[in-house]
Amino acid sequence: MSVARTAVGAEAAALGPLQSFLADFWSSEGLSEAERFPFELALEEVFMNIVMHGSQGLTGVRAVVALEHVDQAFTLTVSDTGNPFDPLAAPPPDTEAAMEDRPIGGLGIYLIRTMMDVVEYRHEDGHNVLVMHKRLGAEPA
């Protein structure tokens, strides 16, 4: 089992360093590059949500990103000190809607839920904690 974690301020400029943090850990674990994508995507969607919404009306919001590789599974956990927000409580977007009826946005959490095996939210000690888990090496659906 390997774990890594890092803490950053909830600012858009931290997204690049966070992606590097994930990419470096991923390659140090010898994992397939092709399988990193769902985690890159989840990291951006969740972190930018904290930056844009979770920090509203607050200053000094922090986010902790934890990575865990155990056997053939990977877990990304993002916790933050922002406004309490359960992304899993949001209704799914209507992916059947016509172009004219599409709200611009609201897709990020839907993409994560579809691409991950397990997504769990809890509010704990004043922190939002979002856990995203996926088995690796699975045959594409």
Partner: peptide
């Protein structure tokens, strides 16, 4: 190589403008 929902919505904006 990579697109997130932020990038995806630009495709939607582009498709709507084109239409």
């Amino acid at each position: 190589e990579y697109v997130s929902s932020a990038g995806l919505r630009v495709f939607l904006v582009g498709a709507r403008a084109a239409k």
